[in-house]
Design a protein around this nucleic acid. Structure first.
Length: 217
DNA sequence: ATTTAGATCCTCT
DNA sequence: GAGGATCTAAATG
């Protein structure tokens, strides 16, 4: 018989963002659409936003606003925000309630429901777009999984529409993650340089080449 | 392969 | 009123 899917529980999110960002690599993001269809993707790229002293974080300086309120909620809460006039990004809140740390999920490798993901992304079902383009990048991922404002502040521990599943022997990364500076936070001064982006080095589904390759001749 | 410009609107100052 | 935890297509080397 097929074992019931396990999911990450409350204790799994009681961890600092830089630590959880690594732990989440190889776990599965799961989403149940209103149609009942289930989408799954293996998390391959994350970024840590490590709290009030992190200049790149929406919660820098303890700014607490209606937008980032979810960052102050229980560990295991979803923080979904809107940016650039057209995109959503999905974060997993962690550490302790009131300590606004979160992990931005930047890319997954589609495992289940990829045709629906392509549809949600507006990509032709036909071979045109590589699988790698379906959910690589925080906004692409949200589009592919139909994650929007309505999922902000959802409890990933109990929700039946959005949750996380533990890594298995077949999904767990086999090598230590690559660490790089975070993307798109150049305004954050010294914090822009911190190595708080983590990529599974075995994947081809990251939002950009994990290791900048020297030019081929 | 790398750079750019444009889309577009919410959030905070 | 400014700018952003982005993406895409088009232009350029």
């Amino acid at each position: 018989m097929i074992p019931k899917s396990l999911r990450l529980g409350p204790q799994d999110f009681v961890e600092s963002a830089d630590s959880l960002a690594v732990s989440l690599l190889g776990t599965t993001l799961a989403r149940r659409l209103s149609s009942g269809l289930i989408l799954r993707g293996r998390i391959v790229e994350t970024e840590a936003y490590i709290g009030v002293r992190d200049r790149a974080s929406h919660a820098f300086g303890c700014r607490r606003t209606p937008r980032n309120e979810a960052m102050y909620a229980r560990p295991g809460t979803a923080y979904v925000y809107f940016t650039y006039g057209m995109h959503f990004c999905f974060n997993v809140v962690c550490a302790a309630a009131g300590d606004p740390q979160a992990v931005l999920i930047r890319a997954v490798e589609p495992l289940e429901g990829i045709e629906e993901m392509r549809h949600l992304r507006g990509l032709g079902a036909a071979a045109a777009a590589a699988d790698r383009l379906v959910a690589s990048g925080p906004a692409r991922l949200c589009q592919a999984f139909a994650i929007d404002r309505t999922l902000n502040a959802v409890d990933l521990v109990t929700s039946d529409t959005l949750w996380l599943e533990p890594a298995t022997d077949s999904t767990r990364p086999t090598r230590r993650p690559l660490r790089t500076p975070r993307i798109g936070v150049d305004y954050a001064g010294a914090w822009a340089k911190r190595l708080l982006r983590f990529v599974d080095p075995t994947t081809e589904h990251a939002s950009r080449s994990p290791r900048p390759r020297t030019k081929r001749k």
